[in-house]
Amino acid sequence: MLANFASIDSLFYLAGLVAVIASLKVVTGNNTVHALLYLVVSLLAVAVCFYLMGAPFAAGLEVIVYAGAILVLFVFAVLMFGLGADETANAPQNKNVANMFGAMFLAFALLIEIVIIINNADLQQNLQANVIDSKAVGIMLYGPYLLAVEIASFLLLAGLLAGYHYAKPDVTRGPL
């Protein structure tokens, strides 16, 4: 039934709306973990957008790397170091239920969207017409952008080193 109203752009707008609302919740939220969850929702919505724009590879990366790895890093940091403590203390408790419902609602909307996309053959055909698949991206990455990939690896190395330096425990022993 819903599928009849569905077109790529209406789905895109819906996903975009979800992303915007979720992002707003991230920014305005009080609870760190809630905010992180909203951020995940936002990223997922953006991934749907990517998919609708004909970039399934990017959508996959968004989900796997962004939502799956980077945000998990956040969650780890929050949980391990109790970073959220000073914010949760001040958070209004009664809003928790509403928050839960909000997040659930947004996630649900995304779920419906995905179901529609998968079920609708027309949509699938339209999407396939102008998709830029992982092969094209791969050719680019290991063709003209090869140096960029190399430099990106150094970028990660820099991030790693800087992160290591800041996070490593204070020295207690003398110089090596």
Partner: peptide, 23 residues
């Protein structure tokens, strides 16, 4: 622009590490 961006970030991230180096 891609190399500009990467160079820029490489410079920035390394500098972030260096700026607060003296812990």
């Amino acid at each position: 622009y891609a190399s500009l961006f990467l160079g820029f970030e490489l410079l920035s991230i390394s500098l972030v590490g260096l700026v607060g180096y003296h812990r």
